[in-house]
Write a protein that binds this DNA or RNA. Structure first.
Length: 276
DNA sequence: GCCCAGGTGAAGT
DNA sequence: ACTTCACATGGG
């Protein structure tokens, strides 16, 4: 078991904040399946204890613990809005995770107009059908397949229960295995990057923002789903009517370079208020 | 059975 | 450019 000292970090909140779907908690440990790795991890105060099926897996990078300007970011977004400040206080230690772009893209194509439990089931089904078995101690899971593995046998998607999203994932997996370079997008400006992402079938404004924020380092992306729409309307828009894509523009303007963090706190805050 | 879900794309205005 | 609507299906 490896150990890593952390500060300003809450593992449980970070994992359970709707950024990643393929995880479960067994006793004290979270088992997170990401790419071709299973990460077994728990937090004990200011330490993370973990082991991973892949010895080269970079836990620190994955959990957003590198290049730490966290305290400053929290201060900055809190100053921009009362509700964000409350959310930051309520869920301090929530971090943006760094995902692999293709797996993130596939995940959020599956997410559209769905719910988190179903998304998790869909992604696990895709991994079972197309992926390789991974084991870590007594625990086993399946890797997430590369885009070309899905595109070559997209007929098998039917068994994964994606509904109408199936055709989008099939088409996007084909595009991505042919002529799509995520790394090039990483170097673009936000608008160009978003246009590129939205050229993929099943990727609209919201899913594009999720991919940009969760896997390509665009900290200003501000994904607006139904939860964000509700909380933004209630607290910032005086219940005015505004299309989701306009609320996203508003959010980026209001919260600036770290709008993505503001969004993640607001989203999590809204969901937790509703469930308690 | 009813309503909702981390929306998208196409059609109509 | 903005608004409306169909879309597949499981979870609560």
């Amino acid at each position: 078991m490896k150990s890593l000292a952390v500060s300003n970090f809450n593992l449980g909140t970070t994992i359970d904040s709707g950024q990643i779907f393929r995880w479960e908690k067994v006793d004290d440990f979270y088992y997170v399946t990401v790419g071709n790795s299973v990460l077994k991890i728990k937090q004990s105060g200011d330490r993370l204890l973990y082991e991973c099926s892949n010895s080269r897996f970079d836990v620190e990078n994955f959990l957003g613990l590198k290049n730490d300007g966290y305290a400053g970011i929290m201060e900055s977004i809190s100053a921009s809005g009362k509700i964000v400040a409350a959310a930051v206080t309520a869920h301090s230690g929530l971090r943006l995770i760094n995902q692999e772009p293709w797996e993130c893209t596939a995940s959020f194509i599956c997410s559209s107009f769905s719910n988190i439990k179903r998304i998790r089931g869909n992604l696990n089904a895709i991994a079972r059908v197309y992926g390789q078995k991974i084991t870590l101690g007594d625990y086993s899971s399946h890797s997430f397949p590369a885009a070309d593995v899905i595109s070559k046998k997209s007929g098998l998607l039917k068994a994964c229960g994606l509904g109408y999203r199936e055709k989008y994932l099939a088409a996007s997996s084909q595009r991505i295995s042919k002529d799509f370079d995520f790394e090039k997008i990483r170097d673009s400006n936000y608008d160009a990057a978003k246009t590129q992402m939205m050229s993929l079938p099943g990727v609209g404004s919201k899913v594009a923002d999720c991919i940009l924020l969760f896997s390509l380092g665009f900290t200003e992306a501000f994904p607006v789903d139904v939860w964000m729409e509700r909380i933004m309307k209630k607290h910032y828009l005086g219940s005015r009517k505004m299309a989701a894509s306009k609320i996203a523009d508003y959010g980026r303007q209001k919260f600036g370079k770290h709008a993505g963090y503001a969004q993640q706190f607001l989203y999590h805050y809204a969901r937790k208020l509703n469930s308690n």
